[in-house]
Design a protein around this nucleic acid. Sequence first.
DNA 1: TTGTTTGTTCAATTAATCGGAACAATCGAA
DNA 2: TTCGATTGTTCCGATTAATTGAACAAACAA
Lengths: 107, 107
Amino acid sequence: MQCFIHPDIKDVTLEAVLYALADPARRAIVRALAADRACEGAGLSCHAAAPPDLPKATVSQHYSKLRAAGVVRATRKGVSVIHTLRCDELNAKFPGLLPAILEAVEA
Amino acid sequence: MQCFIHPDIKDVTLEAVLYALADPARRAIVRALAADRACEGAGLSCHAAAPPDLPKATVSQHYSKLRAAGVVRATRKGVSVIHTLRCDELNAKFPGLLPAILEAVEA
DNA sequence: TTGTTTGTTCAATTAATCGGAACAATCGAA
DNA sequence: TTCGATTGTTCCGATTAATTGAACAAACAA
């Protein structure tokens, strides 16, 4: 099994989080994960949270950046990789940032 | 005189704002402009708000992106170009976003 | 073992960024 | 007006990053 590497919250930088969330595809993923969380979901597979029509290699790279930035956490569940938002940790480290971005009305 | 083009606040996108603020040099500029504003300053010249040691061409490009994203406004004052943060407009359109980023502790 | 599903990694193309050099705008002084 | 100094901008080549098809890997069921 391949282990996913997640940064400790103390090593998460505003830099990386903003870069990660600046991309519309990654923001769509994060929005889907936030919605899932609000519905008491237990996380979503890569495909489930990603915008359709994106090549899977691209989707995979986006998740990779989100994990490296400390925005999401991944665990393997069978053949799928389940991602969850690191919501509480992020909100403790960067108060108000995630809500401000998620609640913003996109163009 | 060269006129600077600034998007109407209604055309400012989260996309562009996040891309603009994802860069550390541009964030440093925005922090300097926010500090100037807090001290009732009337704006800062390009060089005054930019981190030192950056080539002026690079600094100019950063300001260009900040203007295009709708984050700052520019007016020429003699030989200088004075920039100010579009603070109130941004906060009305994306509530809490700018404060969350400005108040975040950088790595 | 074989086939299916879900993601990752590799490698090549494409796009964006950086920064030196030349150019432009403004102003003060001769 | 003309020259020089100051402050930014634009151009363009070089470096760097993002995208994605194709091959590979991991888990599971039959």
